[in-house]
Design a protein around this nucleic acid. Structure first.
Lengths: 241, 241
DNA sequence: TCAAAAGTGTTGCCGCTACACCCATGA
DNA sequence: TCATGGGTGTAGCGGCAACACTTTTGA
């Protein structure tokens, strides 16, 4: 370099050199709950160095989009999933993380109900929901990315009511509890769970019960979104368990 | 594009096109505590569109470094500060955020004691510690970046004992309390603060008192780093207030 | 009548908040 | 003796964890 000042992007440089450019990609860890287990949406990798391996859903950033926009576009182009709320996690920039050259990636995650979306690859790439617990290896550094995304998912699950987007509008307390147990990977005491939820005052008893179950039917509840929005949650440390 | 598959970075593409490359930068919000106020280290912007404005310390990523490495290098090259622990916050990728073209930035923050470092610009760019409260405008989107960094700093302050790196090895409880109040921007009850800290069991009474003060001298404590490391902090939600 | 899941209360502990006065020192 | 900051205790409340039995339903 000539001088540091000459190259500093915030000082007097009048153009950006064409050296020191990078590819930027987005990789999405889409977590899915199917009522039983926590899964992750993977695509089969057709890339020579990782042929047959599975990878997160990802692609390159384009010129006229922000990274957030790219994340939504890339998810849509690969799976036809639309209106998915994606949360940015962090960047991964290992020098050799991609065989074809320098690619810096931004990781995103989401959590959805697998039955709310029909996942279709418009490009005939194989897509598959796989149980998180059974994933042992992924292409690139995606195993690392996935584990960081799962950590962030668990944090968010404790702080915001994302669980209620994964259940039918009317749900039982046992359904809700099971969801928390699966995503967080912990066991929860039933009585304490119910007390805490009821004390939050955000569940509405819809005065209905389960049908067609061969045991005592459970009462059903709705989550009170408008009440939740109306109370100040900015400084809450723990919304849930 | 031909087909989405043909362009997908995780599939059969055998080279990365030279289109769709980006500049990547790092911007560091270095927070400094001087015993009185919370400050931020800024550099004067010599860049035409923002001439005379102040900006965060930042520069471009180079080919053979990770973003974390770049953050440390950039901080060192601009300020001679070494061994500063930087924490990544998030990316900023607004399409028009930089006048010279597409520059995606990764924001970092740190918190240091201003008297522990002599800040020197090797390139004669003006560097200045400015009180956070008095900063009204910054170049680029750095005001936004700064506010996001401050939010992250406050979160970390509540979860990990970074405060103790900012004080002398032996400190009084009032010094510690003032630090928390300044960084978090809140008032704290003295008795509750002391009780909580003492119950943590991580302060060691060094059996010394302040010297040369014209009032009752305070007892001094050390933070017990080794005890802190030995206890499991992974699942703690709140280390401090 | 059985299997299967739903539902329910109490106790003890701990941490949080709110709050006001005396103490030790140097000037 | 005064000014300055240092230092202390209590009471009430609320949340959290641990823990086991009864109820309702359909098969």
């Amino acid at each position: 370099m000539t001088t540091a000042a000459a190259q500093n992007i915030n000082t007097w440089m009048t153009h950006l050199s064409s050296e020191s450019q990078f590819h930027i990609s987005v990789d999405c860890a889409i977590f899915g709950y199917n009522g039983e287990t926590l899964q992750v949406l993977l695509m089969e990798c057709d890339f020579p160095a990782y042929k047959g391996k599975w990878s997160l859903v990802g692609d390159l950033l384009k010129q006229n989009e922000t990274i957030n926009n790219a994340a939504n576009r890339i998810l849509y182009e690969n799976t036809q999933m639309d209106n998915v709320y994606l949360e940015q996690v962090e960047s991964f920039s290992g020098i050799d993380r991609h065989p074809l050259g320098r690619v810096v990636t931004l990781a995103y995650y989401s959590l959805i109900n697998t039955s709310d979306y029909e996942v279709v690859s418009p490009t005939h790439i194989r897509l598959e929901w796989q149980d998180l617990e059974e994933i042992t290896e992924l292409a690139f550094d995606h195993k690392l990315i996935l584990s960081r995304c799962h950590i962030m998912l668990k944090k968010q699950m404790r702080l915001s009511p994302i669980a209620f987007d994964l259940l039918p509008e009317k749900f039982s307390l046992n359904q809700l509890q099971k969801l928390y147990e699966v995503v967080l990977g912990v066991e929860i005491d039933k009585r304490n769970f119910r007390r805490k939820l009821k004390n939050q005052g955000l569940l509405i008893d819809v005065d209905e019960i389960q049908c067609d179950v061969s045991h005592r039917p459970a009462k059903l509840y709705r989550f009170d979104y408008s009440k939740y929005k109306s109370i100040n949650n900015g400084n809450k440390l723990s919304f849930m368990i």
